[in-house]
Design a binder for these strands. Structure first.
Length: 278
DNA sequence: CACGAGACCTGTTCGC
DNA sequence: TGCGAACAGGTCTCGT
């Protein structure tokens, strides 16, 4: 489910807390329950329990679509996969069906990793770099420039849609924000990466950052039963809008499958590349 | 290196 | 109404 803006929103909420929910920062972990073993990549369940109990949550960060919890000694990494979410709830709450991992905290609250489809994963390690080493640049970092993007596009010969979804190319985009960024940049998802001009790459760079920033500003996107609180779904340009008019030109949004992912685009604003004979 | 198919999972919606 | 197919925010692995 969640892409960069949703993860960023979750991290901010866990860090800040709210009127109703305490912040996670500086809370001690006093117990765990692993309800679906395969959610835990490393270490073993016994080792996980032994090591994490007694550690304090010092800070929370994001890298790509990963959440990083900096504990007293280790780093806890969580990837939410397709349907994962993190919830703060009182210990007295009954366990929801799709809870996969619980961290009980010192103050009578718990952090619950809920994940219907079981694609999410958790790591506890002293070396988070080993888990994150495959990730490409952070699209919102100041160090990531349009020149960088242009050069990275030039060194590959791939279609834009699957390339932007490749986390080693750029970290954080998923199916929604990729379609949105390509529409904003007026680029067809099947365009070959190394055919972009410098100005097209600059436009794509702006668009990627633009949709991610707007996603964050709207607290992410909420669709169906997964993830709540976001508003960005009301502002989609193309995602999930098959057959509806393009906000820019009125043409009907099309859906095709690219790399086994549903892909939404405007046939007029995003003309097919010449090299993509149908 | 690039690409497609299949796995891993559960739940909802679509189409006949 | 019922039932199987298609589809869903992700990523990994294998074969070509």
């Amino acid at each position: 489910m969640p892409e960069l803006p949703e993860i960023e929103t979750i991290v901010a909420a866990l860090r800040r807390g709210s009127e109703e929910v305490p912040s996670l920062i500086d809370l001690n972990i006093v117990g765990t329950q692993l309800l679906w073993e395969r959610s835990l990549k490393t270490p073993t369940p016994a080792e996980f329990q032994r090591r994490i109990i007694g550690q304090t949550i010092r800070d929370i960060h994001r890298r790509g679509k990963y959440l990083l919890f900096y504990l007293s000694l280790d780093t806890l990494l969580i990837h939410l996969g397709m349907s994962g979410d993190l919830l703060m709830e009182p210990d007295s709450t009954s366990l929801a069906v799709h809870h996969r991992l619980i961290l009980n905290l010192q103050n009578g609250w718990r952090l619950a990793f809920n994940d219907t489809r079981k694609f999410g994963r958790v790591w506890l390690t002293t070396e988070p770099k080993t888990v994150l080493s495959h990730l490409g640049p952070e699209p919102l970092e100041v160090s990531f420039t349009s020149q960088d993007l242009y050069q990275r596009l030039q060194t590959r010969h791939r279609k834009l849609k699957p390339l932007l979804l490749d986390q080693s190319f750029l970290a954080g985009l998923g199916n929604i924000y990729t379609d949105e960024a390509l529409h904003m940049a007026h680029l067809h998802p099947l365009t070959t990466s190394n055919t972009l001009t410098l100005s097209q790459a600059e436009c794509l760079w702006q668009s990627i950052r633009g949709v991610l920033q707007e996603g964050i500003r709207r607290n992410g996107a909420s669709i169906d039963w997964v993830y709540k609180g976001g508003e960005y779904q009301h502002y989609f340009r193309v995602y999930g809008r098959t057959g509806q008019p393009c906000s820019e030109c009125g043409s009907l949004i099309q859906r095709i499958v690219v790399g086994q992912r549903g892909t939404h685009y405007c046939p007029v604003c995003q003309p097919p590349p010449v090299d993509s004979m149908e």
